[in-house]
Amino acid sequence: MSILEIISIILILGGLFFFFTATVGLIRMPDYYCRMQATGKGDTLGAVLCLSGLALYNLDSGLSFANIIVSIKIMFIAIFIFIANPTATHAISKAGIDCEVKPWTKKKEVQS
């Protein structure tokens, strides 16, 4: 097992952990503004870590032209997710505010 494989295993396991926290947040949080707090961050970092781990593992089998192109493509997908995921999060929360969904607050729970 080479050093690149060990680094990529660590990166992919870290990404899996952040995916896991994003999913737990999606299930447990009280309303969807708070759910987006968990998913918008956890998904972005999880996907970026997983994809960079896969790009490193792909370079392990030799530095040919095709391998380098494939790694660059994987990093392109990572950069795209890095830009697109916060934008989608903002679009969904703006739709919610336009529909006048009240955000959940602690005080409201005590009153009811």
Binding site: F17, F18, T21, V24, G25, R28, M29, P30, D31, Y33, C34, Q37, A38, K41, G42, T44, L45, P103, W104, T105, K106
Partner: peptide, 24 residues
């Protein structure tokens, strides 16, 4: 900052009582 924020969210989510107080 992203790594800090993910650790922050993970700490909040994995605690059983979930100490949040959201506001706009």
């Amino acid at each position: 900052q992203i790594i800090l924020s993910n650790i922050h969210v993970a700490k909040i989510v994995l605690k059983p009582e979930m100490p949040i107080d959201p506001d706009i």
